[in-house]
Simulated assay, not measured.
Amino acid sequence: MKIALYGQKFGKKNIPYLNQFIGYASNNSIDIYIEKSFLNILNSFEELKNLNFPVFSHHKELTKDFSLMFTFGGDGTILSAITLIRDSGIPIVGVNTGNLGFLATFNKDVFVKKIDQIFNKKLLLMQRSLLCVETSIKKNNKKFFNFALNEIVILRKETVSMITIDAYIDNEFLTSYWADGLIISTPTGSTGYSLSCGGPIISPDNKNFVLTPISPHNLFSRPLIISDQQNVHLKIHSRVKYYSLSMDTRLISMNQENELYIKKAPFYIYLLQEGGNTYYKTLREKLLWGIDQRN
């Protein structure tokens, strides 16, 4: 078996869990490949400086013969890992060494206890849809990974004035949003930025997207849920030349003449999840539902 390891930072308190993981892999003839920058971080610790594993640094090196990718961090680490996973179909095991952990659902203790079940893939494999964005002007744009698991966000840039976003659904004019920006979110991302802007929570098995305006000036401008089979076309108008386009953790500057075309991506991301750790249980625990704050 061949597996990949990825992370963006690492705390010393997590070293015992990593050592147990590496020991298990070694005893079971599992080949470990570590993302190059993450290996440099691990080697900065005295206890881990002698780690000697093959590395990868590009998505083309993650071939389909990899059985799993393990991410050490939080949800942001998984979002970053997707730029390497892409359409390879390699399932992700998110080990939560971060904070909230909506996607990275294995806490460190559970991860160690369930390691046999993880490697034997006896846990739940969750399929998550993504968004894809195309631009109307391509020749001057740098090539970028144009997919997002959580959300695509259009934001005003270098101005305190609102921007205007003309939105079309399947070529039919919907409305003009006068706002600081607009969020187009997947069900996975509905508990993120969209939620903080008043958007609904959508369970991941729904085949929907949600359009959530950011600080809209029109009081009747509210989040809208649409089918993920529909295409969204956006035209942006601003007092300055550029606006910002965010795709999960990645932010780029776009000329306002550049229109956006957003649709469902032609592939899915797969997350391995503990059987008893359901989506609704995660909501209760992470959002403190049912907790009496008076106590």
Rank of each mutant, 00 (worst) to 15 (best):
N28Q: 08
L149R: 00
I225E: 06
Y193E: 07
P187V: 11
R250Q: 05
D292I: 13
N50P: 15
D109L: 12
N258P: 15
G7P: 08
Q127F: 07
Y6P: 07
Y280G: 08
Q117Y: 05
P91I: 04
V133M: 02
Y242D: 13
T249K: 10
M247S: 04
L251A: 10
G192F: 00
P200K: 03
A167C: 14
F111C: 03
Y24W: 09
M1Q: 06
T212F: 10
K9Q: 11
S161H: 07
F102V: 12
T135L: 03
N96A: 09
S221K: 00
K13I: 15
F66S: 02
Y177G: 11
F173I: 15
E46A: 09
K60W: 10
L234Q: 04
L283M: 13
F119W: 07
V112S: 15
D228E: 08
V232P: 01
I82V: 15
N14S: 13
S88I: 03
V160D: 03
T105W: 00
L42F: 06
C197I: 00
N99T: 12
I90D: 01
N120I: 05
Q230Y: 04
I41Q: 05
E47H: 03
S57T: 14
E134D: 14
K142Y: 07
Y280L: 12
I30F: 00
S26F: 02
I202C: 06
V153K: 10
K36W: 05
L62R: 03
N140F: 11
H233T: 14
V210R: 05
N295C: 13
D248Y: 08
S44W: 10
N107W: 03
L51H: 01
E151Y: 03
E151C: 04
I152Q: 05
Q256C: 13
P223Y: 00
G101T: 12
S176D: 04
L288P: 01
T71V: 10
Q229Y: 07
K207P: 00
R294L: 08
I226S: 06
V133H: 01
K235I: 14
G199E: 12
T135P: 07
V95L: 06
D205M: 04
E46C: 08
G189D: 11
T282Q: 01
G73H: 04
S194M: 10
I92C: 01
S176F: 01
L62K: 03
R86E: 02
V160E: 06
K60V: 15
F38T: 04
N96G: 10
D31N: 13
I90N: 01
N19R: 09
E47S: 09
S161D: 10
N295L: 14
A148C: 05
F106T: 02
T159H: 00
K263N: 09
E274C: 15
D75L: 11
L51N: 04
P204R: 00
S253R: 12
R284M: 04
S37F: 13
F45G: 12
Y242Q: 14
F209M: 04
L271Y: 03
Q273D: 00
N43P: 13
D75F: 03
G275A: 10
S176H: 02
I32M: 08
L182Q: 03
N99F: 00
S37P: 14
K142M: 09
K138Y: 07
I152G: 06
K2I: 15
P266I: 06
N231F: 05
N52D: 15
C132R: 14
V55I: 15
L5Y: 07
I34A: 02
